[in-house]
Amino acid sequence: MKIEQLSDGIFEVIVDDKKILVTHNLCPGHSVYGERLIVVDGVEYRQWDPNRSKLSAMVLKGFDIPIEYDSHVLYLGAASGTTVSHISDILTDGLIYAVEFSSRTMRDLIMLCEQRPNVIPIFADANKPRSYAHIVEKVDVIFQDVAQPNQAEIAALNSKYFLEDEGHLMLSIKSRSIDAVSNPKKVFKEEVKKLEGAFGIEFEILQRKELDPFHEDHLGVLARLFVDENLKQQNSFKS
């Protein structure tokens, strides 16, 4: 079987003439949510279904994934850990802080964490980053999939706290959570605009694409925290 690496830890294999996305299974023999396990050259991989995971859809839609083997990632809206488990596969030398606030899904997430040494569960409300500022350090990447009306604000707040200078934000925006009746395109435009500066923090939008046909009315966004070089120099003179 032919296997090709698309980016750190993310592979594409061709099975029965179909290209499928996989990650290298960190817990061999275990399937997390019923996904298929595939062995290539004696190494076990897990199928990564783009219909189940926004991040997988983003890979297939051609996003440049900023997650590296040794990244530290903050994941907001971890749910039962479907996507988290694949990021955990990628981060052979990294770490993922998984924030979720529903107790029902948290139970599954904790079980996942117990199997995977690089996942740290945090039961908290992503609207209140300060309530976990005594736990989470600065991270390289923030991934957010919370499906809340104030998605842009949650992303900005958390980036202010935890994103390294020039760190990356990956965001899935669900238009129906924000405004169930307006045209999704219009909602997307407004949300992206907010990211460009509405919350006292600026992002440079690197890529934006809708995630159809895998997820209808969802926009994927890849952005980089914009750091004002002048300001930074001034600060470094001071200290």
């Binding site: 300060r130 309530s131 500022a133 005594h134 202010k160 935890f162």
Partner: peptide
């Protein structure tokens, strides 16, 4: 501590 007044006001390299 999650309810403490002394929570870091911004992210730190803990």
């Amino acid at each position: 501590a999650a309810g403490s007044e002394d929570l870091p006001p911004y992210g730190l390299n803990l």
